[in-house]
């Protein structure tokens, strides 16, 4: 069995759907996803979650990764009367659709997928374009003000010369847990696995606990960007998402 330290689509897509509907009052969302394997599974989770809480998508469209002009799909979103744009796209297309939505003057909320929080995504956009964009993520190291997190972020920047994202933090937490397992006397891979699957483990990003299927991470955050810089704020935390609403 493989062990995952990063929340799966079932978890983060629940957070994305719930944030849109419960916090932003979205009733008629549009889903834009990618025609890749990543896009295909995330889109299904997003649709399932939205429908379950009574906000069936009014428009769903899957885009090829090579699409350069987001105008056609944005025009469709406009015409569909959607009241929010929910994205499940890779990094480049996420930035591209935000840029083109801003150029078009589309003024409905944009709630993006985890790719938004990869540092290279925000780097593609101007802060003015990012203003008001929200996204789901497993965690957001750069947004967190706690002492421990700031230490992690500084150390990461020093070591890798780039901004840490949720994946980086997930890997860090995972490695720490394995080290803790070894310190607690685990000698074989199986013993490490057993250690990880019992009890809960406090990590920097969240508290980890196995669901018996190897998924350790069940928390997600929603981050939003302001107009000044490319550092998002955490606006909502979701804990213990089972992935089954």
């Amino acid at each position: 069995m493989s062990i995952g330290f990063f929340p799966g689509d079932a978890v983060v897509k629940t957070a994305q759907a719930r944030y849109a509907v419960e916090e932003r009052g979205v009733k008629r969302p549009a889903i834009i996803s990618q025609t890749t394997a990543y896009g295909q599974s995330g889109r299904a989770e997003l649709e399932r979650n939205l429908t379950a809480i009574g906000a069936s998508p009014v428009l769903q469209e899957a885009l090829d990764i090579s699409v350069k002009d987001m105008l056609p799909v944005l025009l469709k979103v406009q015409r569909s009367g959607a009241d929010a744009l929910l994205l499940h796209l890779h990094s480049g297309p996420t930035a591209l659709i935000i840029r083109h939505a801003r150029a078009l003057g589309l003024d409905i909320p944009i709630i993006a997928g985890s790719a938004m929080h990869q540092p290279e995504t925000a780097a593609l956009l101007e802060p003015a374009e990012l203003n008001g964009v929200c996204a789901e993520s497993g965690s957001s190291p750069v947004s967190d003000d706690s002492e421990e997190m700031r230490e992690f972020v500084d150390a990461y920047r020093r070591s890798f010369d780039r901004e840490p994202d949720a994946f980086a933090l997930g890997q860090y937490d995972g490695a720490k847990m394995i080290l803790a397992a070894l310190a607690a006397g685990a000698k074989t891979a199986d013993e490490v696995r057993t250690h990880l699957q019992t009890a809960s483990h406090a990590g920097l990003a969240m508290n980890y606990r196995s669901d018996g299927k190897g998924n350790m991470a069940h928390s997600a955050v929603i981050i939003c960007y302001g107009a000044e810089d490319r550092v998002p704020q955490i606006v909502k935390r979701y804990e213990n998402l089972t992935g089954t609403l």
Binding site: T35, E61, A62, L63, D64, V67, D69, L71, P72, V73, L75, K76
Partner: peptide, 18 residues
């Protein structure tokens, strides 16, 4: 081509336009 791509994708879908 550009007019076609944008026009058709806006009334149908991107994969169909392509």
């Amino acid at each position: 081509i550009a007019v076609f791509e944008v026009g058709v994708a806006a009334i149908s879908s991107q994969p169909l336009a392509e």
